[in-house]
Amino acid sequence: MSAINPLNRSMTTDFDSRNMDWYIDKFVQSIVFVAGISAIIFIIGIFVFITMEGLGFLLEDFSFREFFLSPFWEPSDEDAPEYGILALVAGTASVTGLAMVVAIPFSLGAAIFIGEFASGKMREYLKVLVELLAAIPSVVWGFIGLSIMNPLIIDLFDVPVGLNVLNAGIILGLMAAPIMTSIAEDALKAVPDRYREAAEALGATRWQVIFKTVLPAAKNGLLGAVLLGVGRGFGETMAVLMATGHAVNIPGSLFDPVRALTATIAAELGETAVGSPHYQALFTIGIFLFIITFLINLTADLIVRGIRKG
């Protein structure tokens, strides 16, 4: 019964002593702190490990001029291997560029419709649909490019092969669009309603409100969405591996087959001996990809966050 009298408790126990709970709290705090910084450790780890594997090439066979300016990627030529990624960069850039041409208008249009026009249930359904589209795995997209788009392009444009910039660009555009849509829609949602109300109070119509008020206010977020789309296109592997035609080639038309940076690694890593110059060169491409996507993501984040603070 002594517990019922509050005074007893204050008199009998020394309340200023550390107990089990105090130590458990400190322990948990250090555990979750380590988990918290794990992301930093992993990012640094990724950079360190791929650099370590690629280091031999970087120190010996690597020539800045050849690597970035030569269009010849012939690492398995026994007499005079050549490690130029220009054509691969061109392949990645052309596919990503076309993907953005496809994805930007549609994803922004869809974001505007979902965010500004659709209401209630309709908006809810569309958002779910967009989320589901974003979930389709890239290998399935690659397979679609290979087995559905390929014959379609051959039929429609009367070309011998349908695995080319056009195919991969469209596939990549369809892949990137849902993610860009949902990020863009978030950016539109972040524009406070009072902006819209103020513009409407001045007699602006809905579309005037959208074009003159909402879009300018959300432009950083929208730009961030586009940049993340670009980053995604740049880093996509399986879809471009299966749909580009996989030929080292600086494309002259939409119907030329190309080869992407990522796809080169995916296709060749399995055939190279660990530690060989070819193997190390593939890791060097990895370093390049890591740095590029790091910069793209960093920029996107700075742009998006910049507006949130302002």
Partner: peptide, 11 residues
């Protein structure tokens, strides 16, 4: 300067 401020709060 208590060693265990949780105990303080609990009172």
């Amino acid at each position: 300067n208590l060693k265990n401020i949780y105990a303080l709060r609990s009172r």
